Amino acid sequence: MQFLKRLVVALACALTLGLACLLALLIQNPETEEHEHTWIIIFLVVLLLAGILIASCLYAIFKSQHYTEENEILNKQLDHEGTMYSRTSELYERTRRLNHDLKSYLLIILGYLENAEYEQARLHLVEILDRQLKMNLIHYESSGEINAVLNDKLSYAEQHAITLDMHISGEVPREDSMNVAILLSNLLDNAMEAAEKAELRKVQLEMYEEKGMYYIDIINTVNASVLHHNPKLQSTKKDKQQHGIGLKSVRHIVKQLEGSLQMFEEDDAFHSCVSFPMQKG
């Protein structure tokens, strides 16, 4: 695709140069014989038509690339939605199973207490707390999608020794919850990937509502300036085309939310800040 684009641009430049030369020839030699004059005009018309054809090809190429990028973003979002659905189902199943088992646990403890076996009751409670109820689950308002993302990222942070601080308030509009969940997933993935390379592995998430706007601020530690070495924030992974979709997806979602995205560095930390109106239009 890149080679084809360069070829078309080169041909367009060559045709433009040819047209300019022929026009200059006509202007400098007005006494040119009539048949030569006719052939030059015909050649100019052919060059003009070729230029129009090349312009049409360029437009088709750029349009095709735009549609390809749109499809990649949509496919990425579908993948995220599938993952979040799976995570939500998993959390629901774990909660349902725990509720089912809790009655049995309480009946066993009640039996110990009725028989005055207090030490056994205490040990059983300790076992339940250590083995059965050891789940650090986050419940964010009524959004199952956002809950799934936050719990998934918290689990990842714990497994990779990353401190993930979350301060969440306000309420994301229900119609925006899926978009916000996908946006959070992409930005938190990028933040934790960068934090893993830093000496102090820390990511901070703040979500809050203020004056009709909803704000999402994600801050992660860095060892060196990201924007200095990579101002366009291009993916540093081997599969650049695939891994570069995340930020495109974020920008696409921010546009859908009629919001804004800011990325900057301050005090050895990288900031990703999103804001959007609670009511659209």
Rank of each mutant, 00 (worst) to 15 (best):
L17F: 04
D217G: 03
E206W: 06
W39S: 08
M1D: 09
M192G: 00
L184Y: 00
N147R: 03
A161Y: 14
D239F: 00
L25Y: 15
M213Q: 10
E114Y: 09
L129V: 02
F3M: 14
N75G: 06
A116W: 13
N179Y: 13
M1T: 08
M166Y: 02
E117D: 12
R122G: 01
M178E: 08
L78W: 07
L137Q: 09
P30L: 08
L261Q: 02
I146W: 05
H35V: 07
L19S: 09
S177T: 15
L23T: 10
H229F: 10
N99K: 09
E33S: 14
A269F: 00
L78Q: 11
A148P: 03
S260K: 10
I73G: 05
M135A: 11
L98I: 06
G82F: 07
L53S: 15
R201P: 06
M213N: 13
H228E: 13
Y215Q: 04
K248R: 07
M192R: 08
I218G: 03
R122V: 07
R201K: 15
I128W: 01
Q77M: 15
K103E: 05
A116L: 10
K238W: 10
I245N: 04
F270A: 02
I128K: 02
S89N: 09
V180W: 02
T38P: 00
Y105D: 15
L125S: 09
Q65D: 14
A194L: 09
L7H: 12
D152R: 12
S185G: 07
A116M: 12
I245E: 00
E81N: 05
I52G: 09
L227A: 04
V254M: 02
A14Q: 12
L110N: 14
E193I: 11
L184P: 05
E210Y: 06
L102H: 07
A191D: 00
T68D: 15
E193M: 07
K255W: 04
L137N: 02
R131N: 11
Q234A: 11
E171F: 08
N136H: 06
L129D: 03
S185A: 12
G281H: 12
H229R: 01
K240Q: 14
E114D: 14
M135R: 15
V222D: 01
Y156N: 07
G212S: 04
Y140N: 05
L23Q: 14
V45M: 14
I138L: 13
E206Q: 15
K238D: 12
P30Q: 04
K240T: 13
E258M: 03
K197P: 02
N29F: 14
L49Q: 10
I253S: 00
Q204P: 00
R87I: 00
E117S: 12
R251D: 05
L26C: 04
T83C: 08
